[in-house]
Amino acid sequence: MTNQDTKTPNNIQRPDRRTATQIRPLSCKQGFLTQVDGSAQFAASNRSTVICGIYGPTEVKPQDEILDKAFIDVKYRPDVGIPGTKDTLSKVVLRDTFKHIIMRSLHPRTMIQLNFQVTQSDGSIEALAINAGVMALIDAGVPLKYTIAAVSCCIDVDGNALLDPTQDEMNDAVSIHTFAFSNIESDNNTPIYSNSTGKFSLEEYKMCFELCKVGANKILAFMKTCIETKISQLNQS
């Protein structure tokens, strides 16, 4: 668990009293929306929250119909203001990520729509959106190749890597990296998703990679616990 790299000492105190390699306390609830076919809310310490609602597999517009697989449609809305260019980018990125996870060939000539709504933003929204999307797809029963979990990491001005940064930490960061890993063990070194912005060295990238891998595995374990609790509650009846 502890990173051997000297640049990520565990004794760094962050404003919210976390260590550099600690993720914020997570919370997740599924199936709380009534009109969608599946829904999930994924939150980090109740300050960063994303909701995702799934429709599908459902009827597809004729112009979007694909004969041998499902069409993936993503809608993304920020918590403040109307969707802009930045949000369109998030939308495209999310669509391309989920395209590879959903087993689209099992539902040809249909549409699977993911509706993202950021409800509170305090950093790492990109990663939380991926996590919310996965949990919502699982709730909707859409067939998936694997479960993935995403986490962000940023390098601050002193060269320290901070896992799951808050908005303030992201604003002051030199570079921000987001990775998503699947729950398939053999794929442990092949991220499903990687997005880096800012100026960084290869070493820094590798450091973030390792850090995020550990973080993502923690989130995957959290997701598993969430689903186990939900199912065992249902089975009690």
Binding site: I138, L144, T147, N183, I227, I231
Partner: peptide
Amino acid sequence: KIVLPGEQ
């Protein structure tokens, strides 16, 4: 046993 997508 409870399984998640991707689990062998």
